[in-house]
């Protein structure tokens, strides 16, 4: 369900370089805008950057993985696996905010995650008076509705898309969530 486009950019650099110049970040943002990409992630030893933007209007927006190589070979896909959290940047404080620190690899193996397919506000229940769609310890199947995410007043019913028991409700009721943010952990 989640559309995700990942842009690989080879930054001309020193292998040990641990930062990007503002100018370089701007170039990446421009590339993302021009190619309608929602997520950019780059990871090096001791360095990590993630740029993410909400793209909401176009129904036919990029729906499959897209690889763009600039100036050389693409980074290996393994570089995109979650590591322990280093610096995380965002394209602008307004359009998106920093992604939550990724969990350690050993922990991700034990849980599956339900991620937000969009930018919006997370709601655990259909109305403030109603009970939550799911509670910790509750069994879910692929078709179980687990929450609503509101984006521009469109109330989107989100399904678990996985089977198991809710281990943790990570997102907070009534608070904004970003594209790809972990909402629930399922075991």
């Amino acid at each position: 369900m989640v559309w995700r486009a990942v842009l690989f950019v080879l930054i001309p650099n020193h292998p040990r370089r641990t930062h990007l110049e503002l100018k370089e970040i701007k170039i990446i943002i421009d590339l993302m805008k021009r190619n309608d990409l929602a997520l950019f992630q780059l990871e090096r030893e001791g360095f990590k950057i993630k740029l993410q933007r909400g793209s909401l209007a176009a129904p036919g927006a990029a729906s499959g993985p897209l690889t763009v190589q600039v100036g050389g070979a693409a980074l290996p896909a393994a570089a995109l696996a979650a590591g322990d959290g280093a610096a995380s940047a965002s394209s602008s404080p307004a359009a998106s905010s920093s992604a939550p620190a990724p969990v350690a690899a050993s922990e991700t193996e034990a849980y599956r995650e339900i991620n937000s397919p969009m930018v919006g506000t997370f709601y655990q229940s259909p109305s403030p008076e109603a009970g939550p769609f799911v509670k910790v310890g509750q069994e879910v199947t692929e078709d179980s509705v687990v929450c609503i995410i509101e984006a521009m007043k469109v109330m989107n019913e989100i399904k678990a898309e996985t089977k198991g028991v809710i281990a943790e409700i990570v997102a907070e009721n009534g608070k904004p969530v970003q594209f790809g943010q972990v909402l629930f952990k399922v075991k």
Binding site: W3, G60, S63, M152
Partner: peptide, 14 residues
């Protein structure tokens, strides 16, 4: 039943 992913449907409000 719009085309594309649900994440692109927020524009329906406008």
């Amino acid at each position: 039943r719009p085309p594309g992913q649900m994440s692109g449907w927020a524009g329906l409000s406008l």
